[in-house]
Computed example of a mutant assay.
Amino acid sequence: MSALQDRIALVTGAASGIGLATARRFADEGAQVLIADLDAAGLTRALDAMPGSRHEAITLDVTDEPAWIALASRIERQFGHLDVLFNNAGFGKFGSIADTSLDMWRSVIGVNLDSIFLATKYMLPLLEASGHGSIINMSSIRGIAAAPDCASYCAAKGGVRMFTKATALECAAAGNGVRANSIHPGHVATPLTAAAHGDPQVARRLLDDVPIGRIGVPEEIADAVVFLASDAARYMTGAELVVDGGSTAQ
Rank of each mutant, 00 (worst) to 15 (best):
I97A: 13
P51I: 04
A119T: 03
G246R: 11
E128V: 14
P66C: 10
L124M: 11
R74N: 04
I109R: 07
Y235S: 15
G186S: 08
A156I: 04
A21M: 03
V226E: 01
I35H: 00
L102F: 10
D223K: 12
A229W: 05
A98I: 12
I18K: 00
G175Y: 13
M104A: 10
D208A: 15
A229I: 11
A67R: 03
H132V: 09
M104W: 01
R7I: 09
S182E: 04
G213V: 05
L10P: 01
S182Y: 02
A229P: 00
A173H: 14
G80I: 10
R205N: 15
A189R: 12
I141K: 01
T59S: 05
R234E: 15
D231Q: 14
F117T: 01
A9S: 10
A40R: 13
L34M: 07
A168H: 05
L207V: 08
D99T: 12
V178A: 04
G159Q: 02
L34W: 06
V243T: 08
A49C: 03
H197Q: 15
I8Y: 04
M104C: 09
N87K: 00
A3G: 08
S107F: 02
V160C: 05
A249H: 11
D39L: 13
P191H: 13
G238P: 06
R234M: 13
D39V: 09
C154E: 02
S73W: 01
L82F: 06
I136G: 00
V11E: 01
G110C: 07
A9E: 05
T59D: 02
D208C: 14
A67T: 04
A57M: 03
P200D: 06
M1Y: 15
R204F: 14
